[in-house]
Design a protein around this nucleic acid. Sequence first.
DNA 1: GCCGTTTTCGGCCCGACTGTTTTCAGTCG
Length: 570
Amino acid sequence: MSNEKVARVLYEIADLLEIKGVEFKPVAYRRAARNIEELDKDIEEYLKEGRLREIPGVGEAIAKKISEIIESGELNYLKELREELPAGLLQLIEVPEIGPRTVMRLYKELKITNLHELKRAAEEHRIRRLKGFGDRSEEIILKGISLLEHRTGRMLLGYAYFYGKAIVDYMIAAGGYSLISTAGSLRRMKETIGDIDILVGSDEPEKVMRVFVENPRVSEVIAKGDTKSSVRLEEGVQVDIRVVSTDSYGAALQYFTGSKEHNISLRSLAIEKGLKINEYGVFKKDANERIAGRTEEEVYAALGLEMMPPEIRENRGEIKASIEHRLPTLVELGDIKGDFHVHSTMSDGGATVEEIAQDAVKRGYEYIGITDHSESLKVARGVAKEDLKRNIEKVREISEKTGGIRVLMGAEVEIRNDGILDYPDSILKDLDFTVGAVHSGFKMSEKDMTERIVTAMSNDYLTILAHPTGRVLEQREPHQVDVDTIIDTASEKGVFLELNALPERLDLNDLNCRKAKEKGVTIAIGTDAHSLAQLNYMMFGVATGRRGWLEKSSILNTRSLKEVERSLGI
DNA sequence: GCCGTTTTCGGCCCGACTGTTTTCAGTCG
């Protein structure tokens, strides 16, 4: 029974209780579920060791339910809840603008139990007859259903980032705003983004609203108020904007950056200190006197906290770390001195080694690693053994010719099903470094996959394990592998773990990066670029590392060329 | 249902926008 499965049961209970109108319990169940999802150990171990109640948010009642879930595979309490309410109601709360209260009313008064019935009721104008509903309500419901039917899921950070930047740039050009930023999960650089949030500090809010909705890329204005508006772009992306007065900008930026969990903790801390915090500032609770709000630093300082980077505001210990003055000094893009995962025209990349080398010089890199695919990955024009030797010579020549940078010759070598690498050691020894990767045979059991990867890591020539969990966001689940064992093996054998910076991978993810760091494993960030433009993905790798609390010292490519040569033994 | 350097009981984050019911509940972030 995985942590995710246990969490899913608790989430379902929360949803059902919420529809029933039960207060406070849904929040409690969700909190427990979220903390279980983020545990770095198997929940069954907690059960075995009798330590369930050490998990934040898990008390006597939930601990008992978790035991039942793990031991019997099901939960009577959930069964009973499900019997009380039709299963389709859970779909209904997914419809935007429909919440638990509305679901219950529609069920009680119109016997609506699923999406299909809701759609029909709206089309037949039966909903507008209910007290508190009108024709607009029906329109909104129908639009919500349509959106749900066509939803594309969450957007990858790699796309959202550029949409957000385009909107901000437009606002700056069209309105000359200087206090403007993305906020929300985009500013925290989460791997996937729901809506894009923008914040502006201005004392002419109505003008900001006008400029915002008049952006030619806007296809639909969802809501337009005095200080808050929402639009949809032609691409289907929802963008929300808020305006606050210039002297509240810091408080608002803090507030709208979140995360929600981070803010809730901050509020509790404020209450303990006799303060109140909202998007307008920090106030003394009794006197209602404002003591901070112009900048984020001010807001945190008013709570006795050091300023913390947006990427770690997830309520994962950053507030405690801030109180104790042990916040990490996170890695920055400017610390990066090279890239360890780049494909060239020698396999399926779009740029030649010369072009890549020159581009890397422009980026100020000291080194760049070429890692074309190995022989058996035919779909990616994997390089045959005979050709590899010639390629090595060629890359050495280019490296010597290109001033100011060393081009490191590597390869992204297939890890076969038995854990053996796709090139023999006699060839690997001539490379500067070797990146091992799983690109096939995903459906192995966790035990077999873990063994396969550990075997590969035991090869002395394996330098970096590429995209260790194999996930492809919104497309493919990570393969079944015991990440803890991989991290321990990396620590023991001195293998570097990759943080693959492709927006659809970002693998290792933030939580695993943090785990690896705690075990003393060094991370190598690689863009996996297949074109010069994709070398820019380094920023998303760095962002994900920052979310995983990574500092410069835990990352291979912050080291100078000399140090890297020493690390690689070349 | 959880939780506690004010609390083992009584709290549980806070405000904007919308539609509709002309004073507010519901939803969202």
